[in-house]
């Protein structure tokens, strides 16, 4: 496979995952805005921070009100991380790698672009927002479904999955990073409503509030929520799960190409950081520091994958 094609597949699925994650973040933020108007601005501020677009946002707007944030994150063509921009990038990359994907996958991403680019052309009203967000997630699911249902399990598939899981892991880590203070066990906060809301929002932004209720005894407390997001391998957006999938995909590539690249070693090391860990030891080492170094490692890993598989040169 061409290095450029591997890169195109990787970025196509990173962009698509990004679109979906941003939609989730907005959904969680919007819920706070509707139910707890006092916390709205702080919540939007953390959504913007999680998306790593704070500087650009502050240049453009004075206040973190819902309309500004929503339209900046959904429709703003000048924001390279807006859902509109990342969908365009996903679709451009899909055109680039048209010969590597099935007609079904192409048709799904092209259909997603046609539908959503049209909807995101104008600012989204609060009335339309739930529908638009649902649409983004649904379209993303259609592409994923086409990928899983129609593609060969070969190097092409591995690069698609790498893009998805690197982006997803990055996003979950950022959510934890921005909200880490609310995830720390602190006797003074126990069972306060504020914390319950924070935890619920965090879980909602990874679409895991329902899963969380079923996975444990349904009690919200900081260690349980943090464990769920970081260490629970069953949760498809947890750091553990993402790193396991990354190691698996790089392992398949190593086998298929019969070479052992540095990125596999790096991924395995990253995976080890969650192996057999207990959340209390992570708290002892410092949750903030832990997550920060994980984010740095994901960035390094992404860069190494690009090098090892010659995406650019």
């Amino acid at each position: 496979m061409l290095g450029k094609t591997a890169g195109g597949l990787y970025w196509m699925f990173r962009s698509l995952e990004r679109a979906e994650n941003t939609a989730r973040l907005i959904e969680a933020g919007f819920r706070i805005a509707l139910t707890r108007s006092n916390d709205t601005e702080a919540e939007w501020r953390s959504v913007i921070a999680t998306s790593a677009v704070q500087e650009m946002f502050d240049e453009k707007y004075q206040s973190y009100d819902s309309t500004n944030v929503i339209n900046f994150l959904l429709c703003d063509v000048a924001n390279p991380s807006s859902v509109y921009s990342v969908l365009k990038s996903a679709r451009d990359n899909a055109r680039l790698v048209r010969t590597a994907i099935t007609t079904e996958v192409w048709s799904a991403i092209n259909g997603a672009w046609m539908l959503l680019s049209d909807r995101l052309k104008k600012p989204i009203s609060e009335t339309d927002l739930p529908d638009v967000l649902a649409s983004i997630r649904m379209q993303s699911a259609l592409v994923r479904g086409a990928l899983y249902g129609t593609m060969m399990r070969n190097d092409i598939f591995d690069f698609c999955r790498l893009g998805t899981y690197i982006e997803r892991m990055n996003c979950t880590a950022r959510i934890i990073d921005v909200k880490y203070y609310s995830l720390l066990p602190s006797p003074s906060f126990v069972n306060s409503t504020i914390d319950n809301v924070q935890w619920e929002t965090v879980l909602r932004s990874v679409s895991a509030h329902r899963a969380f209720r079923w996975a444990g005894d349904g009690e919200y407390n900081a260690p349980e929520v943090a464990t769920f997001l970081i260490l629970d391998g069953r949760m498809p957006r947890s750091l553990t799960h993402c790193s396991t999938q990354i190691v698996a995909s790089l392992g398949f590539l190593a086998k298929e190409y019969d070479t052992h690249q540095p990125c596999l070693g790096m991924a395995e090391q990253l995976r080890t950081r969650f192996n057999g860990r207990d959340i209390s030891t992570i708290f002892e080492d410092g949750l903030h520091e832990f997550v920060n170094s994980v984010i740095a490692d994901i960035d390094k890993l992404g860069y190494q994958i690009e090098q090892d598989y010659r995406f650019n040169k």
Binding site: M1, L2, G3, K4, A6, D155, L253, Y257, T259, Y309, R310, K313
Partner: peptide, 10 residues
Amino acid sequence: GRIAMRTTCG
């Protein structure tokens, strides 16, 4: 002396 394409394996 040949035209070659950059693949994931060289």
